[in-house]
Design a protein around this nucleic acid. Sequence first.
DNA 1: ACTTGACTTAGAGCGCGCTCCAACTCCCAG
DNA 2: CTGGGAGTTGGAGCGCGCTCTAAGTCAAGT
Lengths: 121, 121
Amino acid sequence: MTIAQVAQRTGLTAHTLRYYERAGLMLEPPPRGDNGHRRYTERDADWIALLTRLRASGMSIAAMRRYAELARRGQGTYAARKELLEAHRAEVIAKIEQLRSDLETVDYKIDLYRRRIRGEE
Amino acid sequence: MTIAQVAQRTGLTAHTLRYYERAGLMLEPPPRGDNGHRRYTERDADWIALLTRLRASGMSIAAMRRYAELARRGQGTYAARKELLEAHRAEVIAKIEQLRSDLETVDYKIDLYRRRIRGEE
DNA sequence: ACTTGACTTAGAGCGCGCTCCAACTCCCAG
DNA sequence: CTGGGAGTTGGAGCGCGCTCTAAGTCAAGT
């Protein structure tokens, strides 16, 4: 797969894919074709897809790099990887709770305006 | 109230409070005491508390400025303010949904590691 | 032979939201 | 009179995550 195809598939830009590689997020730098262009494997694409989910859920580039480093070190790091993801999981859940709580304030305010528009206050 | 007291109460720093003011987020610049120091009113503190909730739920500074501008223009802008908050509300809900969905991937991965650690794969 | 287009690199630039610095004023306690 | 502490200002700086630019290579199409 070319960089453009992976970009298409993952929703990232080619720029971002190169940036992620420089940032140490890949399991290994994708091999190059004769012309020096990156040739992504299916596994690369899957890995990047996972990265986009972690990213979308708020994981920092630095944390993803730590995760990638563990993954590169092989099977011995299952427990560490699990812990990293569990820590992230807790953060995501906390964030969801936070959002829900903030949403209540927004809802309250919306309702207030609704009543004011109807002339009740 | 002094800037330090408001900072204390809202969890923001004095730096950030001045920044918010410069950014046009206040209903009106807080009045000054004889020494030129800001004297926040109770209403200011409440407004800032609302800002922090909007901020925490992901509203941008620019959107908060638009909201503040509407609020400054008075009662005629209730509908516009309501619409702004409703748009934000939709974004927050979408974000919560996104997080929930990403969380599934994280959970799946965690479970995978759990099984690998137990030697099932 | 020439153009087009997809890729390569190193490195610069950007938007956001703070965060801090330097230099200053003011007031109060010792 | 001298610190120390809390505030003031304009403006610089920073960390993050991209995002883009410049200059180049290479392959295919006309």
